[in-house]
Computed example of a mutant assay.
Amino acid sequence: MRNLPAFTLAGYDKGRGKLVQALWFAVMNTVFMAWFTPAGVRTMLLRAFGAKIGEGVLIRHRVRVLWPWKLEIGDHTWIGEGAFLLNLEPIRIGAHVCVSQEAMICTGSHDHRKADFRYRNAPITVEDGAWIATRATVLAGVTVGAQSVVAAGTVLTRDLPALTLHAVDGSRRPVPEPV
């Protein structure tokens, strides 16, 4: 049986003090996510809060990033509208990656086997050239291999080797060559 009042933040480091956290939330919820904010301003804001962002990165509106200082994005990567980078732990996204609309990259979870429902968080790596398709979810501790595809609407719970397609039916097969 769960004992949710026993839950604590033990072992979880947000990485910055409460003032910086509050300032980021204010900026994220007013300027960063707004449709009228240019993509270049979004990358500038992330960098100002400690994210490591490469050149030519495109971040669309309604993107949510929990903690910018726990985010690294390589060159020429796209983050689509409404994507959620829930990074209680670091997220490293390589170069030439596409994270499509409303995809979720989630480094946090809970240990369902423990009564206090303690955190079971782990970093995520998305290697160069990968594609996280629309409404796909990548869960804590996973590495998405280079040039791999996480198909639309799927949930990825374990590492995906390079050049592999994780399909809706849960199967894995080689990524087809481009035409």
Rank of each mutant, 00 (worst) to 15 (best):
L4K: 09
P5L: 00
A6E: 11
F7K: 08
T8K: 02
T8A: 04
L9A: 09
Y12A: 11
D13N: 06
D13H: 02
K14G: 14
G15N: 04
R16E: 13
G17P: 02
L19I: 11
V20A: 12
V20S: 09
V20Q: 11
Q21S: 12
Q21R: 13
L23D: 02
W24H: 02
W24E: 08
M28F: 13
N29K: 13
V31F: 07
V31M: 07
V31Q: 03
F32N: 01
F36K: 15
F36I: 15
T37A: 12
P38C: 13
G40Y: 12
V41M: 14
T43N: 06
T43S: 13
T43F: 07
T43G: 11
M44C: 12
M44Y: 10
L46E: 05
A48I: 00
F49D: 05
G50P: 06
G50V: 08
G50F: 03
A51W: 01
A51S: 05
A51I: 01
I53D: 03
G54H: 02
G56D: 08
G56L: 10
V57I: 09
L58S: 13
R60A: 13
H61F: 13
H61G: 09
R62A: 13
R62H: 12
V63W: 04
V63M: 03
W67C: 14
W67R: 15
P68T: 02
K70S: 09
D75H: 08
D75C: 04
W78C: 10
G82L: 12
G82A: 07
F84G: 08
F84C: 14
L85A: 14
L86W: 15
N87K: 05
P90Q: 08
I91G: 00
I93E: 00
G94H: 12
G94V: 09
A95D: 06
V97F: 03
C98I: 14
C98V: 15
C98D: 15
V99W: 05
S100Q: 14
Q101T: 10
M104C: 13
M104V: 11
C106N: 15
C106F: 07
C106L: 14
H110S: 02
R113T: 15
R118K: 14
R118H: 12
Y119I: 14
R120C: 11
N121R: 04
P123C: 05
I124T: 06
T125N: 05
T125K: 04
V126P: 00
V126T: 01
V126Y: 02
V126M: 06
V126D: 01
G129L: 05
G129A: 04
A130L: 01
I132M: 05
T134K: 09
T134S: 15
R135A: 05
A136G: 10
A136F: 12
L139C: 09
A140I: 06
G141H: 03
G141I: 03
G141A: 06
V144Q: 02
G145Q: 07
G145K: 09
A146E: 14
S148Y: 07
V149D: 06
G153H: 11
G153L: 07
L160I: 06
L163V: 06
L163E: 15
T164E: 00
L165A: 07
L165C: 10
H166P: 04
V168W: 13
D169H: 11
G170A: 10
P174C: 06
V175R: 13
P176M: 05
E177V: 10
E177D: 14
P178S: 10
P178R: 10
